[in-house]
């Protein structure tokens, strides 16, 4: 166990920050580029995971368990959100015939 914990001394925090930010930006990119609503949704999951990684990294570096508890709850919420979100997407597909984002344009002036 002790050697595993020495990761923290070996890999500095900035690396984890960099990794997390990168994953987050890739998630944003995915949201903006893809027109398929399901792929966009998956990009959201990617963003959430990036945040999770960051939190765990900080928790390890600070020796505080609270970060990991928070990650736990983020996972809980993400699960619930995916369930509902996919149900909504299914309904949209049922109503409009496709899950294209641009097909959802009724809420305009």
């Amino acid at each position: 166990m002790n050697e595993i914990t020495s990761t923290i001394q070996v890999v500095p925090l900035e690396y984890y920050i960099f990794l997390s930010v990168t994953l987050f930006s890739i998630g944003v990119l995915g949201m903006l580029i893809r027109r398929n609503a399901i792929i966009a949704f998956m990009s959201i999951e990617l963003m959430l995971n990036a945040v999770n990684l960051l939190m765990v990294a900080f928790s390890a570096f600070r020796g505080d368990a609270k970060g990991q508890v928070f990650v736990f709850f983020i996972m809980v919420v993400a699960a619930a959100e995916v369930a509902i979100g996919l149900a909504i997407l299914t309904m949209i597909h049922h109503n409009r015939g496709s899950v294209d984002i641009n097909a959802l344009n009724k809420l305009k002036w």
Binding site: A40, N102, N105
Partner: peptide, 17 residues
Amino acid sequence: VKQLQQGNTGFYIFGIV
């Protein structure tokens, strides 16, 4: 100003970012 409300979801996401 009302041109902003196009109903285009992609545009909204872009606005958020």
